[in-house]
Computed example of a mutant assay.
Amino acid sequence: MIYCTPELEPADKAVLEEIEDMRRDLMYRLAEPHRWDGQLRRQLQARAIQGSNSIEGYRASVEDIESIMLGEEPLETSSAVTSEIAGYQQALTYIRHLSLARSFRFDAGVLHALNFMMIGHHHDKSPGTVRPGGIYVRNSATGEVVYEGPDVENVPALIDELIDWLNGGDLDQPSYVRAAMAHFNLVAIHPWRDGNGRMSRALQTLVLGRDRILTPEFCSIEEWLGLGENTVEYYRALREVQGGTWNPHDRTLSWVRFCLRAHHMQAQRVRDRLAEAGKVWLLLEEQVDAERLHPRCVSALYQVFVSRRLRRGTYQSDESLSQGQAARDLRELAARDWLTPYGETKGRFYAPGPKMQRVKADFAARVEPLRDPYLTGTAAR
């Protein structure tokens, strides 16, 4: 027996309606292509990868993750963390393909394959295969055991039960609820020696993708979960329902509510970023035109607006330029005080210059707090 889907209350249904309204709004906005869509999507995916991996202690900047996604060497991230990021990106790429596949059924092979993609570089951790023995989750600060997974003898049968449920269980339930329960059951089963948390969060995204919520980078809650106190609340929400050991029951409403709240808050963030992107791009177009710069320079300026830095290879790839063209544009932008160069050769990057810093400060002052859907007040970003 696995953990059961709870019965929702009116407050939960109201939050679900608001999430769906925001999702439809995002879908309509994205139906019309914009110049900034590609960069925004890439950054949102990088933030999701950052969030899920930071929960496990693998920390990298959004800028380095974007470099890894583009096949570049990161500037600050260690080779060990780079391997974790690259593995997770590979798994998410596969999930996007599976979300769009015409013919698909969940099976154990898919889950084991995703786990192998994530941790295949850890040959000593039996990637892609069921753990050989018991498993204990410890508090990283105290060393205390906070959760003990089910006996290894029961794991294959529990995976099979979860697979059966994924393919045919609770199909009348909202997608976000089924995805939350898939996440919870997989992390509670804890089938592998490593990667269980990341796998569970990725499975949540896959369930949403298969239910035709087809933009995983916009519906994932991984970025939200990786933000400071949210990570603490995430572990607290898991432990409240788990109770320390594998003990399936139907008192899972608090977990589902935690996930619905996270989806709502993350959707607000993405909605605000989309609105900001249009305003920023138009402003930068005006500035580029006023200074008689090439129109493609807006792409470089926008990347520096949403990020701490820009590398020549990223701009070159985004605008399909030669190395020389990209280098000349960036030198010109630096000469006009839009960018500030740092480093040399492969380590060279461009940070916001004085003009861009003023633009960023102006938009930072306009940020509105997010609204907690289960409360009447607001929550910090």
Rank of each mutant, 00 (worst) to 15 (best):
A48Y: 05
L370C: 12
Q43R: 15
D272Q: 15
L70K: 09
T93V: 00
D272N: 12
R131P: 07
G143R: 07
N185R: 09
E291G: 01
T142C: 06
I221P: 02
L227P: 02
R292C: 05
S61F: 02
I68K: 02
V359F: 05
T82Q: 15
P127H: 06
H190Y: 00
D194Q: 12
H190I: 01
I68M: 14
D211F: 01
A14F: 08
L70S: 09
R35P: 12
M1K: 11
L339H: 00
R348N: 03
R296E: 03
R47M: 15
E319R: 10
R251A: 13
L114R: 04
T345Q: 14
S61D: 10
P6A: 11
I189P: 02
L370S: 12
A351F: 00
R193G: 12
G134N: 11
R131D: 08
L171Y: 00
G143M: 07
T129I: 09
C219W: 09
N53S: 14
L330K: 02
A80C: 03
A262R: 01
V280P: 05
A351P: 03
E17Q: 10
L260N: 07
T5I: 13
L238A: 07
T77V: 08
R105Y: 10
I221F: 01
L339E: 00
E9S: 14
G244E: 09
L92V: 12
I159E: 01
T82F: 02
K355W: 02
L30N: 11
E222R: 01
